[in-house]
Computed example of a mutant assay.
Amino acid sequence: MSESHHHRTVIGLMSGSSAKGVDAALITTDGEDFVDFHGGLRFPYEDELRGRIQEASQHNIRLDDLLFLEREITLHHAQAVDVLKQQMGPIAESASLIGFHGHTLRHLPSDGVTMQVGNPWLLAEKTGLQVVSDFRRRDMARGGRGAPLASFFHQALFREKDFPVAVLNLGGIANLTWLGADGSIVAADTGPGCGLLDEWAQEMAGLHHDVDGQLARQGTVHQALVDEFLASPYFQRPLPKSAARFEFDHIDVSGLSVEDGAATLCAVTVGGIETAIHSMPGPLGILWVTGGGAHHPVIMKRLRERFPMVRTIDQRNLSPMTLEAECFAWLAVRSLRNLPLTIPETTGCSQPTTGGFVTP
Rank of each mutant, 00 (worst) to 15 (best):
A205V: 03
G12N: 10
S350H: 13
P320T: 13
E93T: 00
Q79K: 14
L75N: 07
R237L: 08
R8L: 04
V186Q: 14
E228P: 00
R136Q: 05
I11H: 12
A276R: 13
S254E: 09
P164F: 08
Q54A: 04
T177M: 09
D182H: 03
H222C: 08
Q218L: 11
G213A: 02
E228N: 09
D64L: 10
D189H: 05
G21C: 12
P148V: 01
F357W: 15
R52L: 15
V10F: 10
D139G: 07
S18M: 07
T275I: 04
K85R: 15
R106K: 13
G348K: 11
D64Q: 03
V35R: 06
F248W: 06
A231N: 12
G293D: 03
T220K: 10
L207Y: 13
L67T: 09
P90R: 14
H6F: 12
V22N: 03
G172V: 05
H208P: 15
P297K: 02
R311C: 00
G171E: 14
G355A: 14
D182F: 02
P344K: 06
L149S: 12
E160A: 08
F307I: 00
D82I: 11
E93V: 00
S184D: 09
D82F: 04
S232F: 12
V253S: 08
D210I: 10
Y45C: 12
G206M: 02
S18I: 06
S96A: 04
L179T: 02
Q214M: 12
R217H: 02
T29F: 09
T269Y: 05
D111A: 14
I251G: 03
I53C: 14
V22M: 14
L318R: 13
R138S: 02
H5W: 03
R52T: 01
T74M: 11
L239E: 01
D189M: 12
S184A: 04
V333G: 09
P238F: 10
A262G: 02
H101G: 01
V253R: 00
G193Y: 08
F37S: 11
Q351F: 14
A174F: 10
Q351D: 08
G356A: 05
A156E: 12
G39Q: 05
T359R: 06
H154Y: 09
L170M: 13
I286R: 13
S94N: 14
V358R: 06
G183I: 13
E274C: 05
M309I: 07
E228G: 03
R217E: 10
S96H: 12
H296R: 04
N60T: 08
A141P: 06
E125Q: 14
A188E: 14
Q58M: 11
H76N: 06
A325W: 04
T190M: 05
E160V: 02
S96V: 01
D210Y: 07
E345T: 03
T190V: 06
D111W: 02
N60W: 12
R8M: 09
H76G: 01
L323Y: 04
G285W: 09
R50N: 00
D162S: 15
K301D: 14
F307Q: 10
T346G: 04
L84C: 10
D182Y: 05
G193W: 07
A25T: 12
L66N: 03
S15N: 03
F135W: 13
T353S: 15
